[in-house]
């Protein structure tokens, strides 16, 4: 399981003594929490929030502002970070959830942008430049985030906790209604469910988890800035979950790992890594339905179908596949002049 890999990773890393890798994976796990929160909405409720970075930012700013006022105990800052994000989600959710589809995407973006510009106007707290965390959060005098490895495992604990929470939510009575609302809201209303209340609850929970991610992120980077809330971040979160495969909590984590790791690796390789990364995304989407997890499932099925046992089989099968692909492409090109109906 992925979590075991995460847990074992620092031990492997200590041999190479690569502190920055621990740092990288800690960041990956923090974003995975945010991605899980988003997948809860997108994957199970078809509520594509394009402003999810705002919740991370709010959580982070709660830590930053409190630290600037010399309050660093997480007994205070953690509930406040989560609570503030949840409150923002609740208030904006009451408005956003009146709309559907693309309009929902755009109105969540609107609120995300408002939060972004608001943070930029917080002159006492650095404005556009952001603010450096005066000190990391403490717990009743202890400083659990001071020790990198301990911090790493705390983040892992949070990730496991969030995963477990989301899983439980999805299969619970509540989750059943929430999933049903995506499938057929009219039917749900006829059954007697007030769909709005369920969606608002899920939206609030998702915002709260985003706040948690923000709390951790502020401590991990010792820094808070409006950039945490920019729409690029929100967009990246969406890309992460689609890349992994939506509607599957594992997909959110796989997608986050793949997105950040691939980005990191390619940017080490070449300065123009986006020129490789971009087309790679396109290719993955064109070839696979259901993101990387979907691709893996397709590959497994293909392995079985082609009965691949050796490297030779593999190459032969790839050859067959490419020939098929070429034939199909030529065919569809020839059909360009013919009309095609859409369902």
């Amino acid at each position: 399981m992925m979590f075991v890999a995460f847990a074992l990773f620092p031990i492997a890393a200590t041999f190479g003594a690569e502190a920055y890798l621990i740092d990288l994976f800690r960041r990956i796990m923090i974003f995975a929490i945010a991605a899980l929160a988003l997948d809860l909405l997108v994957g199970y409720g078809a509520l594509v929030s394009f402003g999810h970075a705002a919740f991370i930012g709010i959580g982070a700013y709660a830590v930053g502002i409190l630290a600037a006022s010399n309050v660093s105990d997480m007994i205070i800052s953690l509930p406040l970070a989560i609570g503030a994000a949840a409150l923002f989600a609740y208030l904006t959710g009451t408005i956003c959830l009146r709309t559907r589809g693309v309009y929902f995407i755009m109105i969540t973006l609107a609120f995300g942008q408002m939060a972004y510009f608001f943070a930029g106007s917080l002159a006492p707290y650095g404005g556009d430049d952001g603010l450096t965390l005066a000190m990391r959060s403490t717990l009743l005098g202890f400083a659990p985030f001071k020790h990198d490895l301990l911090f790493y495992y705390i983040v892992l604990g949070c990730l496991v906790g969030c995963y477990w929470l989301c899983r439980a939510l999805v299969i619970s009575r509540f989750g059943r209604v929430f999933r049903g609302a995506r499938e057929n809201p009219t039917r749900m209303a006829a059954l007697g469910f007030d769909v709005f209340r369920y969606q608002l609850t899920a939206y609030t929970i998702s915002g709260a988890l985003g706040g948690l991610a923000g709390f951790l992120l502020a401590n991990a980077t010792d820094f808070v800035s409006p950039a945490y809330m920019s729409w690029h971040r929100s967009g990246e979160l969406i890309v992460m979950i689609i890349l992994g495969g939506i509607g599957n909590l594992n997909g959110a984590i796989v997608g986050t790992v793949a997105f950040l790791l691939l980005g990191e690796w390619l940017s080490d390789l070449t300065e123009n890594w986006e020129m490789i990364f971009g087309p790679l995304l396109v290719v993955i989407i064109l070839l696979a339905r259901g993101g990387l997890l979907g691709l893996a499932a397709q590959m497994a099925a293909w392995y079985r179908r082609e009965n691949i046992l050796s490297v030779g089989d593999f190459i032969a099968a790839v050859g067959r596949y490419l020939r098929q692909l070429a034939r199909r492409t030529i065919k569809s090109t020839l059909q360009t002049s013919r009309s095609r109906s859409r369902g």
Binding site: V102, G235, V239, I242, F277, L281, R289, R342
Partner: peptide, 20 residues
Amino acid sequence: DRDHLDQVIATFGIILFLDQ
């Protein structure tokens, strides 16, 4: 004829590529 989200990620990939 794909999902909106697939369109989003593929065109996002094109943004990354062309910007760079």
